[in-house]
Design a binder for these strands. Structure first.
Lengths: 227, 227
DNA sequence: GTCTATACGGTGATAGAC
DNA sequence: GTCTATCACCGTATAGAC
């Protein structure tokens, strides 16, 4: 085996791998669609394959079993969520209140916060107790987020007045985010992302009253962006 | 048919109805256990009947179909939840802040707030989009609660200082309750009801800062009771 | 009301051609 | 990689005895 053939092989492997990855992504999307539309209990390989426009055998070929396919779907959502808030945090300036607002509003960005995806999250959460795999996939994303939020609240508590302890602030803010998410699923009809962001930033404002003006500014900016 | 026979018939009917109701309740409990332990997607008549100690045919006899059984299970949870906060509200004094605290802490009473029941709620929410029946069963309970909460926040806003508008306050408090519930399912290991109540009352305190002392008193009382 | 036995359809997964 | 054909199983629901 000479150098050239190795390069060629790598090239082709990579290309194949990429195509395979792309196909997998596509099948995962179809799976998520089905879970949203049918619920986990009625999501079958038949439905998924039909929606994806491939054969049932093809699904098994790519994921080995239905179980692993569902796990990959959850993993996909989880990583997407993780990447989203991490990049939001990276884009934010070093100012702690800006970082907090960035983290907090990230959960309501259009890429993450859709009725479909939230519905699928709930489907998995509903089975999390019976499937440790789901639980750990959910738990990992959750712990990282909680940790980042808690750190920011601690930092912020050192530089500005707070009406709650750092730990309480982070628990409160996170619970509020989760609760607002639920509104997209079973809440009032007109509820939307702008409203969610507005409410959560108001909450941050009453936790850190001295920062309310800068928070208001950030809110105005983000409103401009998301429109 | 004379008067006596009618009375007798009513008596026997009532007795039978009651026994039947009791049996149904028992079967619903088994169903909830299964949804918690297995998830909705693996909850089968076989598992439920085994857990309840009856035959599979018996289940169908009482509920006509698996679908209706699941609906009854959800309805059971929903009514239990509704009755719980309504009776908490009835027991509370007329003082608006006490009423708000009663409503808010009701969601964390031991009868309602167990890991098992929360897990089952999530299972149903996860299928709510695909099953309009579930959605409306969830939505009804939710709307009544939201309405009561909103009214209380409006009343309270008239008699005391508030850092949020009445509408925002009620949205925030409700989201916080929902988000705290999620902590029981996938949150940190040590999370418990006392902590949840403490956090939610702190939130109420910073929304209605002038009431924080009386809220603190109520918190101490409830801690004594729940221990 | 409760049981057992059974019908029937759908489900995940395999085998093998292309 | 993708398909079709096929299998073995498990799910709900029914029928009918007790």
């Amino acid at each position: 085996m000479n150098a050239l053939s190795v390069t060629e092989k790598n090239f082709h492997n990579r290309s194949r791998v990429r195509q395979s990855q792309f196909r997998k992504q596509q099948l995962i999307e179809a799976t998520i669609d089905c879970i949203d539309k049918l619920g986990l209990s009625q999501t079958t390989l038949a439905h998924i394959s039909k929606r994806a426009g491939v054969s049932q055998g093809n699904l098994i070929f790519h994921f080995r079993s239905k179980d692993l396919l569902l796990q990959q779907a959850l993993r996909h959502l989880s990583e997407e969520y993780l990447n989203n808030w991490k990049s939001a945090l990276n884009k934010a300036k070093n100012n702690p209140i800006e970082r907090l607002c960035a983290l907090v509003t990230a959960s309501f960005e259009p890429a993450i916060c859709t009725r479909k995806k939230i519905s699928v999250w709930y489907a998995f959460w509903g089975e999390a107790r019976s499937r440790p795999v789901y639980m750990s996939l959910c738990g990992d994303h959750d712990q990282a987020f909680s940790g980042a939020l808690r750190n920011l609240c601690h930092d912020l508590g050192k530089v500005t007045n707070a009406t709650l302890s750092a730990d309480s602030a982070s628990i409160t803010i996170e619970a509020m985010i989760d609760g607002l998410w639920q509104n997209f699923l079973i809440g009032p009809a007109g509820f939307n992302r702008q409203q969610a962001i507005q409410e959560i930033l108001q909450l941050v404002s009453i936790i850190y009253p001295d920062e309310s003006k800068s928070i208001q500014q950030l809110a105005n900016n983000s409103r401009g962006i998301t429109r």
